[in-house]
């Protein structure tokens, strides 16, 4: 992976010039995750770069979600889950001693597969994170800015006090993005953010991701290859490997620029998956 230097143009590069080589935000080194005795992902090594959108694709059960959840220590919440190897975030081992998972999640936001607004008003959904993190000055402005960044403001500005559960699925997901943006994270992780949405809402989310990448580093897990091709600068293909004892585990098969992955993959398994010959 070290061989990859900045070649492709990064959208929004005019705002934040990328000089020289890309800066890695995450460096995963020999990352394996176990659920109890079960090995879920095996020895993943990957660098994720700043201000790019990195997509993680692969068949069901290959550990895409497991991997993305190691990046903000959501893995901790699964009883019996264990991680070996290192996930470095800006050079700091996320699982090292003295690292606080709550602080990690503050810097690295997450949007989930199923829109999960809190049963509160639209305003309070966005303000919730700000309040718990003590970012109380200029609350109204922060809420408005987050909703604008999530391209939701115009639809909800006249009913901020209404319950968020009354929004459509696509609006709810954009609200969840606004909620994540509001606390000013550095990275936003998307775990299949559009899999529960209709095509129009999906395309709204994808447009939004293009906007967001100017200010944030984005990682998206998706089962939809077209989506990866549309939004991502870099794409990682995870595959399933069957061990001699028939147990299955996810491995990182190939990681490269999206264009290369989809037009000229180096690994036969990637090619088979991309062209639909998987299985």
């Amino acid at each position: 992976m070290e061989a990859i230097r900045t070649k492709i143009e990064v959208a929004g590069a005019g705002l934040r010039p990328v000089v020289g080589e890309r800066q890695a935000v995450f460096e995963a080194r020999d990352v394996s995750v176990f659920y109890g005795d079960q090995l879920a992902i095996d020895n993943v090594n990957i660098d994720i770069y700043q201000h790019l959108i990195t997509a993680i694709i692969g068949p069901s059960g290959c550990g895409k979600s497991t991997f993305i959840r190691t990046l903000n220590r959501m893995t901790d919440l699964v009883p019996g889950a264990r991680l070996s190897g290192q996930v470095r975030y800006r050079g700091i081992d996320l699982y090292g001693p003295g690292v606080d998972a709550v602080e990690v999640r503050r810097r690295i936001g997450m949007v989930f597969q199923k829109p999960n607004p809190f049963p509160k008003s639209i305003y309070d959904n966005v303000a919730y994170g700000l309040r718990i993190l003590g970012m109380r000055n200029g609350l109204d402005e922060r809420v408005e800015r987050a909703l604008r960044s999530a391209a939701l403001w115009d639809e909800v500005k006249d009913r901020l006090g209404d319950t968020a559960l009354g929004l459509s699925g696509g609006q709810q997901q954009r609200l969840c993005i606004a909620r994540a943006i509001a606390v000013e994270p550095e990275v936003i992780l998307f775990d299949e953010p559009a899999s529960a949405l209709d095509p129009i809402s999906t395309s709204a989310i994808e447009d939004l991701m293009h906007e967001l990448k100017r200010d944030y580093t984005l990682v998206i897990v998706t089962h939809n290859m077209q989506q990866a091709a549309r939004v991502a600068d870099m794409t990682a293909f995870f595959g399933l490997e069957v061990a001699p004892d028939e147990s299955r585990r996810g491995v990182l098969v190939e990681y490269d620029e999206t264009e290369k992955i989809f037009t000229n993959p180096s690994d036969k398994r990637t090619e088979d998956y991309i062209t639909g010959r998987f299985g």
Binding site: V102, E103, R105, P117, I132, V183
Partner: peptide
């Protein structure tokens, strides 16, 4: 209460 709500709050950096 759906576990998604718990995860949503924790992912925002809530204790």
């Amino acid at each position: 209460v759906p576990s998604e709500l718990r995860e949503g709050a924790l992912a925002l950096g809530a204790t």
